[in-house]
Amino acid sequence: MKIALKVNGEQHSLEIADENTPLLWIVRDLLNLKGTKFGCGKAACGACTLHVDGEAVRSCSYAVKFADGKKVTTIEGLRNEEAPHPVQQAWLEHVVPQCGYCQPGFMMATAALISKNQEPTDEDIDNNIINICRCATYYRMRKAIHRAAELERDRLSLSTKNIENGEE
């Protein structure tokens, strides 16, 4: 089956023998983007979280056929050319990672959350960030999520201002 994917802004046309292959392996092994991790293969840990059309999905349990014609963003494509994404900025400020293995999944889940909700409460965080970190970096992660939301708010108000000033 031919599959068209736009991954981190780049268009790919792939010939895939088994259309049920999880998107995770297409991204990791065919496109060689290793930032998206394998943890369980059963949608139970969140290490493989990436975005399909802006929604966070657990790519180990998401057949590539469902991504056909869609936009995929991985941790490698989260930042834009000039600057880290607010989530990455917040993660740097709070020095969140320990072993680091689960972190791309958490950052992608957080990026999806704050794109919809720029003022997440602790409860919103508890309900939406349901990945697993064995190093148990949750304490710093929560702070970093609030900080990322704050950075995102700043960014949005800045861009509204720019539009008002006709600088878009």
């Binding site: 060689n32 290793k34 394998f38 941790i75 740097l92 990672p97 293995y101 972190q103």
Partner: peptide
């Protein structure tokens, strides 16, 4: 001082055993 491996871990560098190719 910040961790020396911080940037690699925040930007998704392929640094783990299962990432080796």
């Amino acid at each position: 001082v910040p961790r020396v491996d911080l940037a690699d871990k925040v930007f998704g560098a392929p640094i783990f055993g299962v990432d080796a190719t």
